[in-house]
Computed example of a mutant assay.
Amino acid sequence: MRNFFLLFLVFPLIELFVLIRVGASIGASATLLLVLAGGVLGVLCMRLAGLTTALKVRERMAQGEVPNKDMLNGLLLAVGGGLIFLPGFISDVIGLLCLLPFVRQWLIQRVAQYMEHSAARSREYYARSTTYTKHHGYSETRETHVIEGEYERKDQ
């Protein structure tokens, strides 16, 4: 809950503060041009990475598979492009970091470790739940009871 507070309230305020300070230092027109250039660069990065990569990652995660490194690489390129697209200089710096190859490789290793750990926990939970149902006599599929009959409305 605290993270969402920071993400949606504090981060935009800090972005706005930095934007105003930069605008006061270099001028409003130069700041506007930098923000517009960042937006164009962000759109180009997202097109380069392609939203299809993000959809493939989501699809493979839904199937319980760990996405391969190429898909994670494309996803990080899309995230970096999205951050650059957002107006503000802090998000631009974070987005540019996502575009650097060595940072992407480090993030891919961290995300892959997290996904492997998460998938192992999920498999362990599934194994425990199926063992529990087998030992306690519960069936895997639930049977439905259908009572057939006829009815007639008498209120008319």
Rank of each mutant, 00 (worst) to 15 (best):
T131H: 11
D70Y: 06
E140K: 10
R123D: 15
L76G: 03
L13G: 03
G80T: 01
G27Y: 10
P101I: 07
G42N: 03
L75F: 05
L100G: 05
Y125K: 11
S129N: 08
T133I: 13
L97G: 04
R128I: 01
V146M: 09
F5Q: 04
S91G: 07
C98F: 15
M71H: 15
A28K: 06
L86T: 10
L9F: 14
I84C: 05
E140A: 14
L55E: 12
V103Y: 02
T130V: 14
F17D: 02
R121Q: 12
G50K: 06
R21E: 00
A112K: 14
V57G: 02
T131E: 14
L75V: 00
E15T: 01
E148W: 10
E143P: 04
G137R: 15
A112H: 13
L99K: 06
L9E: 02
A119Y: 05
F89M: 02
G64H: 06
M71S: 14
R142S: 10
E15H: 02
A54W: 04
N3G: 03
E150A: 08
Q113W: 03
L100D: 02
C98M: 10
R58P: 03
R142H: 07
F8G: 09
G23I: 01
L51M: 09
I108F: 08
G39L: 15
I20H: 00
K69W: 05
D155Q: 08
M1I: 08
Y132V: 04
M1D: 11
R128Y: 01
L76F: 14
F4Q: 13
V66R: 11
L32D: 01
G137T: 11
L41K: 11
F102L: 13
G137W: 11
V146D: 07
V43K: 09
G149A: 07
A127H: 03
A119I: 05
T130L: 14
Q105Y: 02
S29P: 01
A30K: 03
S122Q: 14
L72G: 02
M71F: 13
Y125V: 06
P12I: 09
F85H: 03
G42C: 04
V43F: 08
A49Y: 00
E59K: 10
P67S: 06
V57E: 04
P87I: 05
A37E: 02
Y138C: 08
M1G: 13
S122L: 12
L86I: 12
M61Y: 06
L55V: 13
N73Y: 10
R58S: 15
Q105N: 08
S91W: 06
E15S: 03
L32F: 13
G38M: 04
C98R: 01
H145W: 06
G64E: 07
E124I: 02
T31S: 11
Q109R: 14
L76M: 10
Y126H: 07
L99E: 12
F4M: 13
G82R: 00
G88S: 07
E116Q: 14
T141K: 04
K69I: 05
L6F: 08
L41E: 09
Y125L: 12
T52G: 08
Y138E: 12
V35F: 12
G64N: 07
G23E: 02
E124Y: 02
K154D: 03
